[in-house]
């Protein structure tokens, strides 16, 4: 069964305006406390289905930005519009029907089977039973993530990489218009990193989804992203195609890393040389214990 975009009209009748940008972030400020702002004056317009990667050093506010978009965090200053609707005026349920989310890590919990875990992502919580259409959908998503052999296993028994794939499937099972992914490939081996990123990069063209992913793998991002937003110091440092953003100067300024950028088939390829910081090994750690 082909996966189709969920365009079901919601109770409130809010619909995505096709002429408005899919996501429009206007003057967003956010801080966990007033003294320490994390994000300052963020302005981003995402107006077409694309594979957008958010990059930046640890603690710069990448996850915070994503959490502001799906209202896991409450922000006070600024506006985030989705298809012409202010997210602040939407019910959580309504907002979530447009936005899938894949968290960075799984939490320890009571075990559900993989099928049941992914079923949670369908969020049809008014239906009690499980019908075959739902199961088909789950199965197709499992196939997309290539984990159909794990279907009846308990989530708790799986490895960290398999957890990530199950969470990816849970976030994608409804084929939401927008999907937010928080480092979805951090625990995967190199083959599966490429495989999953390639799959994600195809969703905009094939399904019309806007895929927004936080990533640290600079070369995989360079290879697959349509657009890269690079955060630094609480603001957007660079925003554009991989060739525009991933330059020697930008990598030096944002990450403090010396890198060479070469061109491979029209996309940048980054060779990381060294960081500009000396390693520090404390002298008073003592000798090795026998």
């Amino acid at each position: 069964m082909p996966l189709s975009i969920n365009t079901k009209k919601l109770e409130d009748g809010t619909k995505m305006d096709p002429n408005a940008p899919i996501v429009d972030i206007i003057k967003l400020d956010f801080g966990y406390s007033p003294e320490v702002p994390v994000l300052k004056d963020i302005n981003v317009t995402l107006d077409k289905p694309e594979f957008v990667c958010i990059m930046g050093p640890n603690g710069v506010g990448k996850s915070t930005l994503i959490h502001c978009m799906n209202r896991i965090l409450k922000f006070t200053n600024g506006t985030i519009m989705i298809g012409g609707n202010d997210t602040k005026g939407m019910k959580l349920k309504e907002l979530s029907s447009y936005m899938g989310y894949v968290p960075a890590s799984s939490e320890d919990s009571f075990p559900l089977t993989v099928v049941d875990t992914i079923m949670v992502g369908l969020q049809n919580d008014f239906k009690f039973g499980t019908n075959d259409d739902d199961l088909k959908r789950v199965y197709e998503t499992l196939r997309m993530m290539k984990i159909e052999h794990l279907a009846m296993r308990n989530f708790n028994e799986l490895s960290a990489g398999q957890h990530q794939k199950v969470m990816l499937a849970r976030g994608l099972v409804r084929t939401p218009k927008i999907v937010l992914l928080d480092e979805p490939t951090s625990n995967l081996d190199i083959k599966h990193q490429i495989d999953v990123t390639k799959t994600l990069s195809m969703l905009p063209k094939l399904k019309g989804m806007l895929v927004i992913m936080i990533s640290h793998d600079i070369n995989i991002t360079a290879k697959f992203a349509d657009r890269i937003i690079m955060l630094s110091g609480g603001g957007i440092y660079a925003d554009g195609t991989p060739s525009e953003v991933l330059t020697k100067e930008n990598i030096r300024t944002v990450y403090g890393v010396d890198a060479d950028v070469i061109d491979v088939n029209g996309r940048p390829h980054i060779i990381l040389n060294d960081c500009f910081e000396d390693a520090y090994i404390p002298t008073d750690l003592g000798p090795l214990e026998d």
Partner: peptide, 9 residues
């Protein structure tokens, strides 16, 4: 977090 992202407070 996941609950909130799925529309459940």
């Amino acid at each position: 977090k996941n609950a909130k992202a799925l529309g459940l407070d």
